[in-house]
Amino acid sequence: MSHPYGYSQPYPGPAGPAGPPTVPAERPRSLTYAVYGMWLGAVLSAVGVVLILVGYDVDGMRETMLTEFEGDPRLEDSGLDPESFIDAFIPVIQGALVVFGLVTLGLWIWMALVNGKGRNWARIVATVFGAFSIFSGLSSLANIPTAMSADTGAVMFLQSVVLGILQLVLAIAILVLLWVQPTNAYVNAVTAQRKAERSGYLPR
């Protein structure tokens, strides 16, 4: 109903007369620890990139590839020199691994920033990424016997196995923290308040 002097009565929003849940002044510890875990994941990704740059066993990879190519009829028929091919291919592998590590680093940082704000969509995206991390970590566990029997060197073992296991444990912990009750209540309150603000029922 319009007011005689041009004012209008406040209209109760979808959340009812009481309004949406009040967002706590501080986010719960569960979400804070999840964000800390994401920053730790970024640190582990950065360590992985450094290990690829300084500790990649080029000679070992070269010898392994040469062994696999020896006697390969397809390579012999092509007339391609195995050593030249390997020397050109190994830097491509290193570059791809570095790019993948940098992308992973960026995703960790992005997820830490947006999840810290209580965004529900960010929690869902982080859950999807966490599922991929768990799958990757389980693959690292399965590769332990192969990595221990192969002469890959301590640095490559650290990069391929140890970091993978740490990221597996970290991903599980983060997913649990993202979906416990205190985090749920905080994210739901943030979501309700943002919906009310977009509808114009609350001051921004």
Rank of each mutant, 00 (worst) to 15 (best):
S133A: 14
L44M: 14
D151K: 11
A131Q: 08
R27F: 05
G55V: 02
F132M: 11
V99N: 10
E68D: 07
W179R: 11
A25F: 14
Q94N: 13
G60A: 05
V128Y: 10
G71Y: 02
V43G: 14
G79T: 07
M65I: 07
V49A: 12
N188C: 10
S149P: 05
L138W: 11
A126R: 01
R119L: 11
L202S: 00
K117N: 10
P182A: 06
Y5H: 13
G118S: 05
L75E: 00
A171W: 00
S139G: 15
R123G: 06
V114Y: 05
T64W: 07
Y5P: 01
Y5Q: 11
T152E: 05
L177Y: 04
I86G: 05
F100C: 13
E26L: 11
T67K: 12
Y36L: 08
Y11S: 11
S136A: 15
L166P: 02
Y7I: 10
V128L: 13
A46M: 10
R198M: 08
I109F: 05
N184S: 15
L178C: 11
L66T: 07
M148Q: 13
N120Y: 10
W179E: 03
V43Y: 12
T152Y: 07
M156D: 03
V43E: 09
V187C: 03
L141G: 00
H3T: 12
P20T: 04
S149L: 09
D72N: 12
G6A: 06
Q159R: 08
Y56K: 03
L158F: 13
R62N: 08
M65G: 00
T146V: 14
N115E: 00
A126S: 15
M38A: 10
F100M: 12
V103C: 13
I134T: 02
Q9T: 09
D87W: 06
V114E: 03
W121N: 04
V187G: 01
R123H: 10
G130W: 00
A189H: 05
Q193E: 12
R74W: 09
G116K: 02
Q9G: 06
W110P: 00
V54M: 08
L97Y: 07
N143E: 08
Y7D: 09
T127M: 10
T152P: 05
Y11A: 11
G116F: 01
T22Q: 15
L138Y: 12
G101Q: 02
V190C: 04
P21M: 06
G106T: 04
I52C: 12
P73M: 05
R119C: 07
S133M: 10
A150M: 13
N143W: 07
V125K: 04
S140E: 03
F69Y: 06
T22D: 12
V125T: 15
M148Y: 11
G137Q: 00
W39S: 03
A112Q: 00
H3I: 09
A96Q: 04
P28S: 07
A15V: 08
S30R: 03
N184W: 05
L170E: 02
T22V: 15
P73E: 04
P203E: 03
V187F: 01
R29G: 15
P17A: 11
T146M: 11
W110E: 01
P12E: 03
L158M: 13
S78W: 09
V176C: 13
E26P: 12
E63H: 15
G153V: 03
